[in-house]
Design a protein around this nucleic acid. Sequence first.
DNA 1: CGCTCGTTTGAGAGGACTCAAGGTAGGTGG
DNA 2: CCACCTACCTTGAGTCCTCTCAAACGAGCG
Lengths: 197, 197
Amino acid sequence: MILVESDTLLAYGAINQKVSKNEMIFLEGSEPHYFFQVLEGEVKMISLNQDGKELIQGIFKSGQCFGEPPLFVDKPYPSSAVAIVDSIILKMSKKNLLALLDDKPSIAIKLLEIFALRIYNKALSAQILSNNNPEEKILGFLNMVKGDMGVENQTKIPYTRQQIADSTGLCVETVIRTLLKLNNEHKVEIKHHKIYY
Amino acid sequence: MILVESDTLLAYGAINQKVSKNEMIFLEGSEPHYFFQVLEGEVKMISLNQDGKELIQGIFKSGQCFGEPPLFVDKPYPSSAVAIVDSIILKMSKKNLLALLDDKPSIAIKLLEIFALRIYNKALSAQILSNNNPEEKILGFLNMVKGDMGVENQTKIPYTRQQIADSTGLCVETVIRTLLKLNNEHKVEIKHHKIYY
DNA sequence: CGCTCGTTTGAGAGGACTCAAGGTAGGTGG
DNA sequence: CCACCTACCTTGAGTCCTCTCAAACGAGCG
């Protein structure tokens, strides 16, 4: 779901920004000042734990906005945002966002829907992360991903094994071994290292 | 943070409902029709995994609303709501909630803030659940709880060990043994079985 | 061809979970 | 005041399985 077309954002003072692969957009613990939207490319939100292990909190693609919640709660970012590939993002100051929401209540409602969807997905994520059976974790994750893609039939999963590991709290090797098992049980299909579910 | 006073809800057609301890308010997988708010008592949102293990997604106390996100995304409940103690809740139809938000944009903004806070907390929860060091899990949880209570100094943690286990994805025994260790390391304090942090 | 990024395989150790049994505290009723 | 009940907390022993570490393979691209 898309909040607003980029034209409207630009009319409200948003600006373009190029970010290269692996470049950080904002850092866990810092103060939020901007609203962001992906114009082109792909952005991940990650948290690092004390051992340096990465947790993927979400991946945002073209049209999706990200990093707004802390703007509304006056708290520092709980995660960092990093470009996965060379990307172009729009950024708009908090003040302008509030002005936009004030001018157009329908956008506020739409943002409510986006937030609601994110809460829904985070409830699913919590179930995935709390499960200590790797098979269920991975199947749960694949289901969630398909739900987000709005797909019913078998489809290629656009995640690397490392990304699945970082999203489910497993290590890569366990993801690989579990995917093999799921393949043998015909619960997923692996062709040329690509995952179909 | 409180969304609206109960008077306003009642004016918009909300009704009172008594629920006894352990009574279910809505069931994981069912269709959402109502907006809820706790008047008195305490309500938990839980998901059950395939082994029947319970995950606490959140606990809501007097004044707090719960179970709204699925109303906005047209999806079934990802969790069940259960009263922890005898409680009184307000319930209002989805239609009336939308009318209320339409009439009073300031409430829509407030709901945005509540959603934002919930996303923030769920980001913290994800970090806690994905961590596989029990000490960090529990300390992370205790920090989150204190943040919610708005307390800085050492305070009594109003959770049972079982509830901490169900919130962090650990088993009770591990929670107990880890709390003992944290007590010895002077990172928490245990007096008469009560936890202070 | 040679890099880079992602995937795979193996061996070993650690530690959280499970199961079983008992202990403690606070409330209720006789 | 005591006995009892319920809900919660505690301890011990053993197994399983995920993580870690190390090394190598595969594929895509300039």
